[in-house]
């Protein structure tokens, strides 16, 4: 998977779980949870959905490395 494909998958999952969000609201360098009002519960649902789509389950210890969209893409590229 290319970085661009991974990015699209992540955006799709965010919009799926928080349908109130518009794609334009997603700033690739903003803190996902705080900028989009994603609570820890929905964040876990997003990571769960991504583990199914991409095949990588982010351990809790690595949450600091997936805080923004760009960081999340880097993380999945690095671990795939």
């Amino acid at each position: 998977m290319t970085a661009e494909e991974i990015k699209q998958i992540i955006i799709t999952q965010i919009l799926e779980i928080a349908p109130e969000i518009n794609e334009g609201d997603v700033d690739p360098d903003a803190h996902i949870q705080r900028s989009l009002e994603i609570d820890s519960f929905d964040f876990l649902r997003i990571l769960t959905a991504l583990s199914k789509e991409i095949g990588i389950a982010v351990p809790e210890a690595d949450y600091g490395q997936v805080d923004t969209l760009n960081h999340m893409v880097d993380y999945f590229v690095k671990h795939s």
Binding site: S40, F41, L44, L47, T48, S51, A57, V58, P59, E60, A61
Partner: peptide
Amino acid sequence: LEERNQERTIEDRILPA
């Protein structure tokens, strides 16, 4: 909690909440 969650799949993780 982190230790418990390491033994679990992502679906079964328990949140601090």
